[in-house]
């Protein structure tokens, strides 16, 4: 992807930076300008490093960038401070995943863009 587009998302992908709404207390990830409650006032917050699996799957037919990775597990994880994300769950076998299991976010490589593109990093989850 073009580097400005990649660069803009780095605070979220590398450091899980979020924003807490001053109106309703909801944590927005990624940060946004307007909350669903109508408030435009946010304070910096971080997505908790820990969370649990809400649902998951094993991808067996992947997009081109991930073709060499199959099969890999993807889950929707809810962090301890209520942020939900889609993330890979790694360092385990697909059959070890269960709804409700605890996970921790870790910093990992996601994929490489073709042969000459940039290496894309971000968060993944591991079972704890």
């Amino acid at each position: 992807m073009p580097s400005p587009r990649y660069h803009r998302e780095m605070p979220q992908r590398y450091r899980l930076e979020a924003a807490k709404c001053s109106g309703c207390g909801r944590v927005a990830f990624p940060p946004r300008m307007v909350c669903n409650c109508g408030s435009r006032d946010f304070k910096g917050e971080k997505v908790s490093d820990y969370g649990k699996i809400l649902t998951f799957t094993t991808i067996r037919v992947a997009p081109k960038d991930f073709e060499t990775e199959v099969p890999y597990s993807v889950a929707i994880v809810e962090s301890d401070n209520g942020v939900r994300v889609t993330t890979q769950v790694v360092d385990c076998k697909p059959n070890e995943l269960e709804i409700g299991k605890k996970v921790k976010f870790v910093f990992r490589k996601l994929y490489t863009e073709g042969h000459t593109g940039i290496i894309c990093y971000g968060y993944k989850a591991i079972l704890i």
């Binding site: 998302e9 990624p30 649902t55 799957t57 997009p63 990775e69 993807v74 996601l110 971000g122 993944k124």
Partner: peptide, 23 residues
């Protein structure tokens, strides 16, 4: 930026709905 970037596909998204519905 927040779904596809992590390698999820459309079958994958609906599979996660299915898993949650079954559970």
């Amino acid at each position: 930026e927040y779904e596809v970037y992590h390698g999820v596909t459309f079958p994958g998204l609906y599979a996660m709905i299915a898993r949650a519905h079954m559970h």
